[in-house]
Amino acid sequence: MADTPEAIKKSIRTYLFIGGILFAGTILTVLIATVPALDMGAHGFDKWDCIFGLTIATIKASLVAFVFMHLNHEKKAVYWLFASGLCMVCSLAGLTALALWDPIFDSFFYSGH
């Protein structure tokens, strides 16, 4: 972690640079979503918009986490701590979604939820 004034000055430039990337990423996401010319895949909202949007969001979030929250300088323990939370969320979301996609009834006969 940056402790000396020189190191801090250097990281300030990094912070500004990362901030710029975050701004750009946001604009890119909005453009992909709103400008018809940039619409990949089918017209309107489809899985590609979802994938692009979430990928860009994940990259932005990782930048904030690793650089702004200095997770990449932090002790391993902290990193694993935070990662454990993420793991658990993925298991919650993933397994819950799996339950939705694997019902006991054949969807042809059962259209309710």
Partner: peptide, 22 residues
């Protein structure tokens, strides 16, 4: 303990994949 919870929900119409996992 975080990945066993749906064994409380076997009777909710879970399919084979999910219930086997849990």
């Amino acid at each position: 303990s975080f990945v066993v919870w749906a064994h409380h929900m076997y009777m909710t119409g879970m399919g084979a994949a999910v219930s086997t996992f849990f």
